[in-house]
């Protein structure tokens, strides 16, 4: 441990479009993420949660302000490896089966095929998904697909997990299973994790809760759990 924060977000804004039709999705956000932080990010639709997550993930660039990753490295070094992203929509590659999908981040890192498959298999078994390893994504239910996405996160052994409404398309039971899987993965890896969610029940399971309104990070609270 170096003691440096994983992510340092300093007065970041992100504007889409120009002129009168410009939309300020994120407005002057400042925050810091450390190793092991488990954060639920809540807020109404259009409040800028996903945009903030994409900025932290390095998938997008701020219009003003800076996002740095002192505990990880440069933006180019974020993925594949240290930062993993789980999306609301199914994010498995349709032509690859479950185990190939889970192994993909490791393959993208240049690790050997056998090692990648063993790590993927371990992750699937850990999350109770071993029997799905040879299924194609289209043969999975929505909940199964998101749990496989969680297994993919686990297999990649990231330092930071960013989940953008991972239960948005799932019922409560499946949503709970997915959050269980993600929390299990984060705790197992000692990784920091931010989960965007509308679901109060899910947010309450995180020790830290942030809230966004109109692009501003207006409230940071530490949960009692």
């Amino acid at each position: 441990m170096t003691g440096r924060p994983l992510v340092d977000v300093a007065n970041v804004s992100r504007t889409f479009g120009r002129g009168p039709s410009a939309v300020v999705a994120v407005h002057g956000v400042t925050c810091v993420l450390d190793r092991g932080d488990l954060i639920a990010l809540t807020g109404p639709s259009g409040s800028g949660k996903s945009t903030l997550l994409h900025l932290i993930a390095g998938l997008d660039l701020p219009t003003t302000g800076t996002v740095t990753w002192p505990g990880i490295g440069t933006r180019a070094e974020l993925r594949p490896g240290p930062v993993a992203v789980v999306f609301q929509a199914p994010s498995l590659l349709p032509p690859l089966d479950v185990i190939e999908n889970v192994a993909l981040p490791l393959v993208l890192q240049g690790l050997g095929r056998r090692f990648a498959r063993e790590a993927a298999d371990d992750a699937l078994i850990r999350l109770g998904l071993g029997e799905l390893r040879h299924k194609l994504p289209e043969e999975l239910s929505g909940g199964q697909a998101q749990r496989v996405a969680a297994a993919r996160v686990l297999a990649g052994r990231p330092q930071l997990i960013l989940a953008d409404e991972p239960t948005g398309q799932l019922d409560h039971v499946n949503g709970t299973l997915v959050i269980d899987a993600l929390l299990d993965a984060a705790r197992h890896l000692g990784a920091a994790m931010i989960v965007n969610t509308h679901d109060r029940t899910i947010a309450d399971r995180f020790p830290v809760q942030w809230s966004m309104t109109s692009g501003r990070l207006v409230h940071c609270a530490v949960a009692s759990c």
């Binding site: 993925r79 594949p80 999306f87 590659l93 349709p94 993909l104 981040p105 993208l108």
Partner: peptide, 14 residues
Amino acid sequence: TLGIAAALGANRRQ
């Protein structure tokens, strides 16, 4: 499909 690969960190060559 390609977007997912890119989001997972696939570089230009991959």
